[in-house]
Amino acid sequence: MIRVLIADDHTILRDGLKQILAECRDMVVAGEADNGLDALKKVREEEWGVVVLDMSMPGKSGIELVKQIKSEKPKLPILILSMHKEDQYAVRTLKAGASGYLCKDSASAQLVSAIRKVAGGGVFISPEVAEKLAFDLHHKSDAPPHTLLSDREHQVFMMLVQGKGLTEIADELNLSVKTVSTHKTRIQEKMNTNNLSALIKYAIKHGLLDEVGDLPD
C-alpha cells in the first residue's frame, strides 16, 4: 500500500486529489499539509510512500523545500504538482531531487499513474512538459534567457516579478538586502534588461506568471 502525503495550500484541490485516489486499492491518502513547514513536519514524523507537493505554498516551498526533504529523507519520492507547464520548472525540481513533475491541469488523468511510477522508483514527467523539454534540448542556442539563471537567481526573479521588494525577499529567504540586490543585478544582466517592468513583461510573455497586477512605472 502506497501511503501518500498531499501538500497543497488549497483545500478544494486536496479534496479533489483525494477523490481521484479514493478508488485506488494500492494507495491511500494518509496525510495532508497546507504549507511547507507542516509538510516537512509530517515527513519527519511518519513514513510515506510518496509526497505529492505543490510547487508554491506559504512559507518554505518549491526547490528549497524539495532539497530539504531529500536531504533528510533521500529515498522518499516527491511528485511535484504545479500550475506551470514551463519545462525549466520541471528541470529545476528534478535536479533538486524530485522524482516527478505533473501539471495541475493534467492531474485528473495522470495523477494515479504518476504516483505509481515514482513510488516504484521511476521518474515521471507529464507528456506536454516532456515534449517541450525535448524541443528545447534540440534548440539550445535558442534557449530563453531565464534558463541561464541559477536556482537562487530564478527564485529571486520570480519573487521580483510577483511584486515583492528587496527587503521582503531578503526576509523570506533569510538573506541580506545587499545579497538580494546583487542577485537582482545579475538577473538583469543575464536577462539583458535594467528595469523591473521589462522583467514582468518577459515573465508574462513566457508564461511564467498566470496573472499580475499593474506593471510598475
Rank of each mutant, 00 (worst) to 15 (best):
I2C: 11
A7W: 05
A7H: 06
T11N: 04
I12F: 00
I12W: 00
G16I: 00
L17T: 12
Q19S: 13
Q19G: 14
I20F: 01
L21N: 01
L21I: 02
A22K: 01
E23P: 00
R25V: 11
M27Y: 01
M27P: 10
V29Q: 06
A30D: 04
A33G: 08
N35S: 12
G36C: 08
D38E: 14
L40W: 04
L40Y: 12
K41P: 06
R44D: 09
R44L: 07
E47A: 09
W48P: 09
W48H: 05
W48V: 08
G49D: 05
V50P: 15
V51H: 06
V51F: 08
M55K: 03
M57I: 09
G59R: 01
S61M: 11
S61K: 12
G62M: 15
G62S: 13
I63R: 09
E64W: 03
L65Y: 01
V66L: 10
Q68P: 02
I69K: 14
I69F: 13
I69P: 12
K70M: 15
K75I: 03
L76D: 04
P77L: 08
P77F: 05
L79P: 03
L81Y: 09
M83R: 08
H84K: 13
H84C: 02
K85G: 15
E86P: 07
Y89S: 06
A90C: 14
A90E: 08
V91F: 04
R92W: 08
R92N: 10
L94R: 11
A96Y: 14
A98M: 12
S99F: 09
Y101P: 03
L102H: 00
S106K: 13
S106G: 08
A107S: 02
S108P: 02
A109H: 09
L111W: 05
V112K: 06
K117C: 13
V118H: 03
V118G: 03
A119M: 08
G120I: 11
G121I: 11
G122N: 06
V123I: 14
I125E: 01
S126E: 15
A130W: 00
K132D: 09
D136P: 00
L137D: 10
H139V: 02
S141E: 11
D142Q: 15
D142N: 11
D142W: 07
A143C: 04
A143N: 10
P145Q: 02
H146Y: 15
H146G: 11
L149K: 07
R152P: 03
E153M: 07
Q155A: 15
V156H: 04
L160E: 05
G165A: 09
G165D: 14
G165C: 08
L166G: 10
T167W: 00
I169T: 11
I169S: 10
A170L: 12
A170M: 13
E172G: 08
L173H: 00
N174E: 13
S176Q: 06
S176Y: 12
S176W: 10
V177N: 01
S181L: 07
T182D: 05
H183M: 13
K184D: 13
K184A: 12
K184F: 11
R186C: 11
Q188S: 09
K190E: 07
N195D: 14
S197H: 07
A198W: 00
A198F: 03
L199R: 10
K201M: 14
Y202L: 06
Y202F: 10
Y202D: 06
I204L: 15
K205N: 12
G207P: 07
L208V: 05
L209G: 02
L209P: 02
D210M: 12
V212A: 05
G213L: 12
D214A: 14
L215I: 12
D217N: 07
